[in-house]
Amino acid sequence: MIGLEDLYREIILDHYRTPRNRGELETPPARRAEGFNPLCGDEIIVYLQVDEAGVIDDVAIGGQGCSISQSSASMMSVAIKGKTVEDARKLIVAFKGLMSIHETDIGGDGSETALGIDLEGASEGMQLGDLEALRGVVKFPIRIKCATLSWNTLAQVLDE
């Protein structure tokens, strides 16, 4: 039987209790995008500051919602900070793969081909690290949208 411990792993609850990179960034120079889950009213705001070399030198997360959406956003912010935009895009693909989502549209207007990467091996060399803890979400299909909300919002802000 699927247990709640598959969903509410300790690392997830830790990011929910103590969200990382919580706050706002000044826009501009930062870019900002909002994502909503109309089903449950969850809201994620992603602020992204990218330097001239294409490196994400700062990220902030706003909004409110359930433990899965908020912890996923927190873990995402840690994972992408200091990474290049290109690597962040690869992480999006890797995370969506983890969530077993093979939709052709990865958030915003960017299709996989428009992102300039092929799904096969797109996440090559990318370590999901703590994000692996969200793997159990797949056993609770209605929560997948919670877990992917921040990633769709990230894709949106990268495409803008």
């Binding site: 709640l4 449950c40 969850d42 919602g65 359930c66 433990s67 899965i68 929560r143």
Partner: peptide, 8 residues
């Protein structure tokens, strides 16, 4: 606790 988590 968020309602979505309560319901879950």
């Amino acid at each position: 606790v968020h309602p979505h988590d309560v319901a879950q």
